[in-house]
């Protein structure tokens, strides 16, 4: 948690430094490339807070700054996710709105939003969201608005919000099988494998794949609590005779 409240411009600068590093560019930024206002206000702010260091005219992050910056980036990308997934804003609009919105989110709230969104791994543009403490917690609870399929309770369902997979093949595979954003989906069971239902179709996947499918929840509560035996055993003879001829 920052000792001092940073201004919007300083946070922006902090995040930019971090993103430059993430994208594999230089780890430091020449001061000359900054706008005048930033050089006058934001840079001294970062330096006094001990988040950045200056060598000749190059600006780079300190280790505290590194940590703080990842929190800022996390907030920014979570905000984008929130706007796209929950408020259904278009991605291009969302980026701009998220920049403003992000500064309103304070530490602590970001974990709540992360949980609300089902601990997303990437922002809508595909950049990774730095994980927070809530993402590592042992028992992850299902998100309240958006959740990875693997975190749902059997019987719970909603609409596929987005897919995310490190493996391009896997994502294309799921798309071809009909797991497409907008499709209605219900989790049927979690053990021994994840089984979900889309319309009348059932598809079984493993845990890793279930973690890649994010669902926007509808209804909230599970329709049917998980039970050991799906149906009572009575009436089997009748069902057998009817089921066979399909009448």
């Amino acid at each position: 948690m920052p000792e001092v409240e940073l201004s919007e411009a300083a946070e922006e600068l902090l995040a930019n430094l971090w993103v430059m590093r993430e994208e594999g560019n230089a780890a430091c930024l020449p001061l000359s490339e900054l706008e005048t206002e930033d050089r006058d206000a934001a840079v001294p702010e970062l330096l006094t807070a001990g988040l950045a260091q200056q060598e000749s005219d190059m600006l780079s992050l300190t280790s505290t700054g590194e940590r703080e910056a990842s929190v800022v980036v996390r907030r920014e990308r979570l905000a984008e996710r929130l706007l796209v997934d929950v408020l259904d804003l278009r991605e291009s609009v969302a980026t701009e709105a998220a920049c403003k919105f992000e500064h309103l989110l304070r530490t602590g709230i970001d974990d709540e939003i992360c949980t609300l969104l089902g601990h997303p791994k990437v922002c809508p543009h595909g950049s990774p969201i730095p994980p927070g403490e809530c993402c590592h917690a042992g028992a992850r609870e299902a998100g309240k608005a958006v959740s990875a399929l693997s975190d749902l309770v059997p019987g719970q369902g909603g609409v596929i919000a987005y897919l995310h997979s490190g493996r391009r093949q896997m994502m294309q595979r799921m798309l071809a099988m009909g797991a497409i954003p907008g499709a209605r989906i219900v989790l049927v069971q979690k053990f021994p494998s994840y089984v979900f239902r889309m319309g009348e179709r059932q598809i079984a996947v493993d845990r890793e794949t279930a973690q890649d499918i994010y669902v926007r929840l509808t209804g909230g509560q599970p329709v049917r609590p998980p039970s050991w035996f799906p149906r009572p055993f009575r009436g089997w003879g009748r069902r057998f005779r009817r089921g066979r001829r399909g009448q």
Binding site: V188, P192, S193, W228, F229, P230, W236, R239, G243
Partner: peptide, 19 residues
């Protein structure tokens, strides 16, 4: 229509113990 015997069997076959 209520689940047929085949459907029930299909569900049971996915169940860790009944399966």
């Amino acid at each position: 229509v209520r689940a047929s015997f085949a459907e029930t069997l299909g569900r049971l076959a996915m169940h860790p113990i009944a399966g």
